[in-house]
């Protein structure tokens, strides 16, 4: 206890010292640096990733933690459920270093990047934004005519950009309809 009392006295002495402002500035700097420390190795995060609960880690550190307890994948800080797939890499402006080959760690998951939504309308057939459509059907001809003719104000949604999931889906759907049409025609011919 006596040692502690001494320690307390010495800290009490230091506090009102003249070097207080520089000390607090240094403290602030230290705090800033600590904000970017990995929660596992306590060093500045390398190959930084952030969990969905917002905690920062080195990717190799987090990977090793998840490998240590595959059955209990919890955030080391707040014990929220986490998974390897659901971490976000942080790309700063610094040089991206080569990964240490000794760490047999798979590459850090890539960020998910989605294209911004296309706003430009489809301007097909030179009719401009108005979208003039005509169709002639047999069946319920007059009604079909009305519904297809009086839709001047509406704009058709633009085609999905190439490579996006929506584009692939549309391609797939158009193939399906093509096959349905072919089967229908075959059936008509046979009948």
């Amino acid at each position: 206890m006596s040692k502690c009392e001494l320690a307390e006295m010495s800290t009490a002495k230091e506090q009102p010292g003249p070097s207080k402002p520089s000390g607090s500035a240094q403290e602030e700097k230290e705090r800033d640096e600590r904000m970017f420390e990995c929660n596992i190795c306590l060093d500045t995060a390398k190959d930084a990733v952030v969990s969905m609960c917002g905690h920062l880690f080195c990717w190799p550190c987090l990977y090793q933690w998840l490998e240590t307890r595959p059955a209990r994948q919890l955030c080391p800080v707040c014990k929220a459920a986490i998974s390897k797939e659901k971490v976000i890499p942080l790309y700063g402006r610094g040089i991206t270093k080569q990964e240490d080959p000794r760490n047999n760690v798979p590459p850090r998951p890539a960020g998910q990047r989605s294209e911004p939504e296309a706003n430009a309308g489809f301007s097909g057939f030179g009719f401009g934004e108005g979208g003039f459509h005509m169709s002639f059907g047999i069946g319920a001809f007059p009604f079909g005519f009305f519904t297809s003719t009086f839709n001047f104000g509406e704009t058709r949604p633009g085609a999905a950009p190439r490579g996006s999931p929506q584009f692939l889906e549309e391609q797939f759907l158009s193939k399906v309809f093509l096959w349905v049409a072919l089967v229908f025609i075959c059936w008509l011919v046979m009948a």
Binding site: M1, C4, A7, E8, T11, C41, L42, D43, C61
Partner: peptide, 24 residues
């Protein structure tokens, strides 16, 4: 190496912590 590095850092931190100052 990770273990030793981390203990070193923790050790420095714990010595500076207010609990140590309060002798807890």
């Amino acid at each position: 190496n990770i273990a030793a590095q981390r203990i070193k850092r923790e050790f420095k931190e714990v010595i500076k912590s207010e609990e140590v100052a309060k002798c807890a």
